[in-house]
Write a protein that binds this DNA or RNA. Structure first.
Length: 277
DNA sequence: AGATCACTCCGGCAGC
DNA sequence: TGCTGCCGGAGTGATC
């Protein structure tokens, strides 16, 4: 599933669409009325036609296509990814490679620049993602609900607050039932999902089940550094998941103890009982 | 007010 | 081989 490093990687590729104008849109909702509400529903469908793509940014796990008079806000959720019809891309997700196919295309944007035509496609097999059009006010309202960014990257939508050590320390002081839930809460910190939450806790030597306010100052700082470290490494390693330390691992990369797995708030969680306590 | 919980979307796929 | 149940970001609404 895509988290900040995956979305950042995708946005960098999507920036090649700057300057192109949307001439047509096709939405495949596969007979699902619920899914139809997620991919340019109602008026949004017509609103994007004729608009130019001014720039492309990332905020948390959202992709923002700034257009002439508003923005297309997209979320890849679990299985979403973007590519171009004329030059299909592949993306490596932790579940495996997303190789471009026609079967899972949900939205197609016909684009034009200097008489040349190309097709931008949003794929999403499980239809958990979303592609919405909104005006600048709606966009601002939406983005204002997200917490500070987990880390700064080159495609970040700015201005925005980036998480600081002090802010993270203050967040921990709130009594969150588990520190992993805090890390994954987009209202508190934007960009971290299930994979990198487990990874950051391993890096810090902190049991993900701990209440956030039970963490010592040293642990809070280690966790703050862990968030940055695992996200930056993922980006630098170009999404090579061989670098993951606990997520979906059987054995601790540090002490060789078996990795334990259970669920926190319904999400699979991995940790080493010996190194994380 | 803010935290927390339960529920929903959906298809791939593990496990019988 | 064909079925069933599980999985999960985010949004929503209920409940404290």
């Amino acid at each position: 599933m895509p988290e900040m490093p995956e979305v950042e990687t995708m946005v960098r590729r999507l920036q090649s669409w700057k300057g192109w104008r949307i001439t047509d849109v096709k939405v495949d909702v596969r007979m699902s009325s619920k899914a139809a509400k997620k991919f340019l529903p109602g008026d949004e469908y017509n609103s994007v036609i004729g608009q130019g793509i001014v720039d492309v940014y990332r905020r948390g796990k959202f992709i923002i296509f700034m257009t002439s008079s508003g923005a297309i806000l997209a979320h890849n959720a679990m299985s979403g990814y973007w590519d171009m019809l004329e030059d299909p891309w592949t993306f490596d997700y932790v579940e495996g490679q997303r190789a471009s196919t026609d079967a899972d295309v949900r939205v197609m944007f016909k684009l034009e620049m200097f008489g040349e035509q190309k097709t931008l496609r949003f794929h999403d097999a499980r239809m958990f993602g979303s592609v919405r059009y909104m005006d600048p006010t709606q966009l601002a309202v939406k983005l204002s609900k997200l917490g500070p960014e987990a880390d700064h990257t080159m495609s970040l939508y700015e201005p925005v607050q980036v998480l600081t050590s002090e802010h993270f320390n203050a967040l921990c002081t709130g009594h969150y039932k588990s520190v992993k839930e805090l890390l994954m809460n987009q209202d508190k910190i934007a960009g971290i999902g299930n994979i990198y939450a487990s990874e950051a806790c391993w890096f810090a030597g902190v049991d993900p089940h701990r209440t956030s306010d039970s963490l010592t100052g040293v642990e809070r700082n280690r966790l703050f550094l862990g968030i940055r470290s695992v996200l930056r490494q993922a980006l630098e390693r170009r999404l090579d998941y061989g670098g993951l330390k606990v997520y979906r691992r059987k054995q601790c990369q540090n002490c060789e103890s078996p990795i334990i797995t259970d669920k926190i708030k319904g999400r699979s969680t991995y940790w080493c009982a010996r190194c994380q306590n």
